[in-house]
Amino acid sequence: MSQLLAEEKKRITPKRPRDYVTWAVAIAIVAGLVWTAVTNENYRWPVVFSYFTTQSILNGLLITLVLTAVSMALSTLLGLVLAVMRMSHQRPVSGLAQLYIAFFRGTPVLVQLIFWFNIAALYPHISIGIPFTDISTPVNVNAIMTPLTAAVVGLTLNQAAYMSEIIRGGFASVPRGQHEAAESLGMSGFTKLRRVIIPQTMPSVVPATGNQVIGMLKETSLVSVLGVADLLNSAQSIYARNYQTIPLLIVASLWYLIMTLVLSVPQSMIERRFSRSTRARLTPAATSAEPGAGQPVPATRESLL
């Protein structure tokens, strides 16, 4: 007989059969996968390891990373411009942005990449200059539209359409009263955006942009069709010579996996930080009850110091 008083007894939830079954099934699946990976000779793991840090693979890796960084940076800038245009009260301005977004989101990025690579067929020569003056430079489109430029242009223009929607969502999350407060102080449109509105879009824009970066990293593999020596293309060039197709695709996949896993660490940190500060901000009532109790981390500290 138990000596415990009813009041002192712990409360437990007894384990049920399904708690063990789910574990057993999951372990069986993973074990099976590992078993076949180890025993199936066709994986040729020694080949995977011998090519894992080959110079041409590492060069491809670098190109993939640079392409991701450059395209993301440019598309974020262009996306911001498009988002501001999209929200303009001037119908022609918002209409143009809408048209852009519809076009670039409505066609596959792979098609766009090939299109840009072949743009010289449409416009063999363009001249860049100042209208109504004689100052202009003729440009041979064929010469400048190398695989790498086509890759950057294609990825940037496509991604900008998505970024503009993310940024627009961020603007929509800022309450109308913030605009009114800034305007009532006599702020110009630019100062208002730069100092008041844009910092407040960060909690929604930054985590979403992080996701786009990870997406972009994988999307860059499409440029291999243009002959840009990115990670996938470098792997392809090697197996075109030695026919070790599967091992080299594994090499490329492992590198993509490593890069996305590495990127997901700051990404989840950013997400946690911003969700915390948003919570603190969305519940002023909670903090007003006990001032100073909540210690929110402001999204972006705007210092006028």
Binding site: G177, E180, A181, A182, V196, P298, A299, E302
Partner: peptide, 9 residues
């Protein structure tokens, strides 16, 4: 304003 509209950042 009724809702204060301080800049939270």
């Amino acid at each position: 304003f009724q809702q204060f509209n301080l800049f939270p950042n």
